[in-house]
Write a protein that binds this DNA or RNA. Sequence first.
DNA 1: TGTACATCAGTGAACGCGCGTTCACTGATGTAC
DNA 2: TGTACATCAGTGAACGCGCGTTCACTGATGTAC
Lengths: 215, 215
Amino acid sequence: MTTATPESSYHHGDLPSALLAAVGDIVIEKGAANVSLREAARRAGVSHSAPAHHFGDKDGMLAAFSHQGFDVLAAEVGAALEVVADEPPEVRIQAAGAAYVRFAAANPAHFDVMFRTGLGSVEEASHDEMKNTGAMDLLKELVGEMVVEGRVPAEHAEHFAVSLWASAHGLASLWVDGAIPHMFPGMTLDELLDAAFGEAMLMFRATSLGEGVTV
Amino acid sequence: MTTATPESSYHHGDLPSALLAAVGDIVIEKGAANVSLREAARRAGVSHSAPAHHFGDKDGMLAAFSHQGFDVLAAEVGAALEVVADEPPEVRIQAAGAAYVRFAAANPAHFDVMFRTGLGSVEEASHDEMKNTGAMDLLKELVGEMVVEGRVPAEHAEHFAVSLWASAHGLASLWVDGAIPHMFPGMTLDELLDAAFGEAMLMFRATSLGEGVTV
DNA sequence: TGTACATCAGTGAACGCGCGTTCACTGATGTAC
DNA sequence: TGTACATCAGTGAACGCGCGTTCACTGATGTAC
């Protein structure tokens, strides 16, 4: 049993991971805007020019952090779906939506960099990640199953999909930045997930879309 | 008729407004993280130390920009509600939600700074603005009317309110950062607002909340 | 109408700071023979 | 087992930059009398 921390070694062992962990800490403590190569290096206990070795430049480091988040998100949604693999599509949509919001709540720094970094920044890269992990395909596929089973009129499938995505994304955003706990103290995430993705709600959304009065 | 631009004058005329307009442009072009006092001053054609005169410091300038956004949001939601003042509460909720999303789509820079500046920044100030403009009170009041009319069980009122807020906020976020147009090209905002806040949808949400199967 | 003065708006030089990036380097590790 | 060498990981000095903030200043405007 060797000492767990090889602190006298010249090589770090797993510097990329340590740097990404540092990025997460910085985002939580000082906001995504204050992430810097030098600060991440400092926290990883390494010279300020070391990060460039692994990530090329600052954008590269943030992109790696974001990518890590998309991997975790995909894994967690996937795991949630395995549990309900044999259930009808509305139950699986419910599970996927809940996993999306829970991911955000559990990984606020990642969610922030992935989706909330703001206008003019790495947006397009994020959209591509979203496509590459197949998240959007998955949503469309689940909605597609509901169409096949006759539960969603084909012409409303896309609106249904976007509407679900927006519910999940809005819940995640407001929860992560503390707005919900601030305005409605004591409310739990489980209650909210149930209100937004409860089965009765999903079934109604699926069938009634487009039948409402025009705004 | 004098020349519209008093360019030789020492005093600007309305420098605060010009600076806030510059902030908006910077947010759109380079992201909220790249807003600086000096860049705003440059765009307003004024010395780099002028902004401090009006806003104190950088945080003050961003707070003023955010405040301006909350004012516009409150005005637009108010105007939308006047049109439907005599309608039942679910119609007014629909109108308010649509106004919220339309505000974001029309003022992406403001929406970004108000709500999406990220963890660790001016969050708490934003929550307070939200309270001060009475936006949250308004939502609670409208939902309260539905409770009084027996359309929402009192114990589900808060979940209903949050669920509506999340839908609006998610739609606004995904629309503003281009995710929806990117994933679902050709979709219009009106279609989405109808899907999310259509009257049938609202009525169902109001009555069915909490009756779904637990997640 | 004119003068004195206070107030306000904007200037420009100066400061110190943290940053991203480059580059020649050195320490450590692995591999071929 | 030992040696030579290539490759990789991290160092530290140096650069130039844009920034926020301060401060004594000056130009313009308004107000009291």
